[in-house]
């Protein structure tokens, strides 16, 4: 296993407010790394630093592709991060292109290949064979993912007209169409019903196992986090308070204190352990 992403001493200050305070962690290739923490813990801010929305005040973000290329994300522009470092992300609120068709949403994500093949539009205008071929390949990749997400029948509908759960999955497969090395998902299960959550879990595990990329996941829904993540990082008030396997994190007194405000030595309230048990996590440890 290579260390796909190494975050070292990441700090982001907005004036006097410290949104992220000296956070270091690593995410492995072919693993799902979850970042959890109470609201306002700085999880999304970490994502924003990774994808170039914010420039970190201090810290180094190193992304190493499995074939050895190394990128310092904190020094790169947003669209360059997406294009050359191959980091893709989704948002808490759905940000599809609602007025474009489902297929077009997926083809836009592959525009770098197409732009090259089309000789920056000119060859595309005259319909050169190389461009036609690239376009067919783009549509093929799109249909492969549509099939995976179970929305192949709705390829020509406007993205805005899909049901909520399908929009969530479309967002994820759109990110996958950029052929990323690291996929950052910001609360993909928010607002999903249990059946849609199960479909989401399946899609994420498929991405990890079959496409062999790293997934970074922000999620509140513990039935997702505990079931699919290989590694969990816990943030609270911008600091990292725990880091380890799901079982280790779940038992960490610091995590329990952050979530429940309990004393260290007190046990989880029964209804909480029951919930966690229902989520497929062995109760107690």
């Amino acid at each position: 296993m290579t260390r796909l992403l190494v975050v070292e001493h990441l700090t982001l200050r907005f004036g006097g407010l410290v949104a992220v305070d000296d956070v270091s962690f690593a995410a492995e290739d072919r693993q799902i790394t979850a970042i959890i923490g109470p609201n306002g813990a700085g999880k999304t801010t970490v994502f924003n630093c990774l994808t170039g929305f914010y420039k970190p005040t201090v810290g180094r973000l190193t992304l190493t592709h499995p074939e050895g290329h190394r990128f310092l994300l904190e020094q790169m522009e947003g669209h360059v991060i997406a294009k050359t470092a191959r980091v893709a992300r989704t948002f808490q609120n759905i940000r599809l292109f609602p007025g474009m068709s489902v297929l077009e949403n997926l083809v836009v994500a592959q525009h770098n290949k197409l732009m090259r093949a089309s000789g920056f539009t000119l060859a595309g205008l005259v319909g050169a064979p190389a461009y036609k071929k690239a376009e067919r390949a783009a549509v093929d990749l799109a249909s492969y993912w549509l099939d995976r997400a179970g929305i192949v029948g709705r390829a020509d509908d406007s993205a805005g007209n899909l049901p909520y759960g399908a929009q969530r999955r479309l967002e994820i497969i759109r990110a996958m169409c950029t052929e990323p090395k690291l996929l950052c998902l910001d609360e993909p299960a928010a607002g999903l019903n249990p059946r849609e959550t199960a479909e989401l879990n399946e899609l994420l595990m498929f991405i990890r196992d079959e496409h062999k990329i790293g997934v970074l996941l922000i999620e509140h829904d513990m039935s997702v986090v505990m079931k699919i993540s290989d590694h969990i990082v816990v943030l609270d008030y911008g600091r990292k308070i725990s880091d380890g396997s799901p079982a280790a994190v779940r038992a960490d007194p610091a995590v329990i204190r952050a979530y429940l405000g309990e004393e260290e030595d007190e046990a989880l309230p029964p209804e909480v352990s029951k919930d966690l048990g229902a989520a497929g996590v062995p109760a107690g440890s």
Partner: peptide, 16 residues
């Protein structure tokens, strides 16, 4: 059209 609908998202998908 993608930039028209959501410029930041388009940038994240690698659109210049």
């Amino acid at each position: 059209r993608a930039c028209e609908q959501d410029m930041r998202m388009a940038r994240l998908l690698g659109v210049d």
